[in-house]
Amino acid sequence: MTPVQLYVLAGVLLCGLGFAGFLLTSHLLRKLMAFNIMGSGTFLLLVGLAQPNNTPDPVPQALVLTGIVVALAATALALVLMRRWYHLSGRTDLQGGPGD
């Protein structure tokens, strides 16, 4: 198995894992981690699929860097909203609490 095939395989597995985790957990922090796992899988696929013969392609690597910053921004915003939601409602999920 070439390293690239390994990237792709790992990317696919992380995507499946993250997807299941995202839908199965209700704790907001775990959901967010599942999203990040799925995101990492996607980034691995983006880089891995683009270099079948092992010569690195700078374009997908730059795309992944952009994608990481976007995912980071979304994660940070979700954390702030989540902490504040917890602060106001005392809940770690979105079921129940004020205003449902």
Binding site: F22, L28, K31, F35, M38, G39, T42, A74, L77, A78, L81, M82, R84, W85, L88, S89, L94, G97, P98, G99, D100
Partner: peptide
């Protein structure tokens, strides 16, 4: 709190959709 709940639900749906 109600706005936060709506925003969080929206954000999570949007993030999964983008992925």
């Amino acid at each position: 709190a109600p706005a936060l709940r709506a925003a969080l639900r929206y954000l999570y749906a949007a993030l999964l959709g983008s992925l």
